[in-house]
Write a protein that binds this DNA or RNA. Sequence first.
DNA 1: TTGTTTTACTTGAAGCTTCAACTAAAACAA
DNA 2: TTGTTTTAGTTGAAGCTTCAAGTAAAACAA
Lengths: 159, 159
Amino acid sequence: MTEPRWLNADERRAWLALLSINTLLPAALDTQLQAAGKLSLFDYNVLAMLSEAEGRFLPMSELAARTSASLSRLSHVVTKLQGRGWVEREAHPGDARVTVAHLTDAGMNTIVSLAPGHVDAVRALMLDAMTDDDVADLARIGEKIVARLDDDHWILREH
Amino acid sequence: MTEPRWLNADERRAWLALLSINTLLPAALDTQLQAAGKLSLFDYNVLAMLSEAEGRFLPMSELAARTSASLSRLSHVVTKLQGRGWVEREAHPGDARVTVAHLTDAGMNTIVSLAPGHVDAVRALMLDAMTDDDVADLARIGEKIVARLDDDHWILREH
DNA sequence: TTGTTTTACTTGAAGCTTCAACTAAAACAA
DNA sequence: TTGTTTTAGTTGAAGCTTCAAGTAAAACAA
């Protein structure tokens, strides 16, 4: 019978802080984006990832990877975004299994108009609380955790 | 016309890492808890916060604060946990507006049996990826962000 | 070639969260 | 006291996410 190793003080502080950030930060960003354009943080990220991709399109699988989402979740959301005229589904020329999500001009205009307010919110809610060293530390530690959660996560790919 | 200040490399890395952790970590912990006891991470935290409170009870508002949740969300979840016999609702003696949530013996047994597996998962998914210094840095930076999001958040109260 | 497995995605239902509206008691103001 | 505001919580509906099941094409195996 092995005693479970309990959390020490720093471990507990780190874990509880992450848990709280996890709930509060997306909620605050959702509120901002909902007010600015009636979309969620996840919706925004789908549009943002497409806007940064070459040709503004990506296969559903790749888009799911870049938004850390399940294919099912993404499929439902793309259907919604398609209904708003921001995204279109297209066939992949080489592989008939693949669906390509394509950001429309209307979708591009939407993200361009929302980006400044969203970035301001990210700054106001977290970055402004931190020194430059803090930001560098968080980037380093955050990427370690991401690597542990998913060792070939797209953000770890060298650019 | 002011140009929006865009994110620099470290800011972008920190933000994208946090966003990914935010999606992947709760999902992985939900999976573990779902398999171990058919409950969500949020359900677990409600039970955990009650189990650590004196007398194993807390007003709904205080429990909502300690789980970073809205009262509405908590109310729905407490109804569900009540249905499973893990929590009871009681009247507050001094203030008739207040509902007190009380962890039952069955609820206590549930959390005691789930805690070791949950802590192991938290270790495996994030803490084991970090050095002791990383953990201390994350605790410090995380609490700064929490303070920015909610300046009198319960985890910042001195103990 | 034919059968099997894997990959990529979609769908509908069930469960969870948010939102707006509501109730009721406590606190405050005149 | 009476009226107003604030606090504490609940509820139902709408929207979102997950889950299980399904489709169809590509890859692989014999």
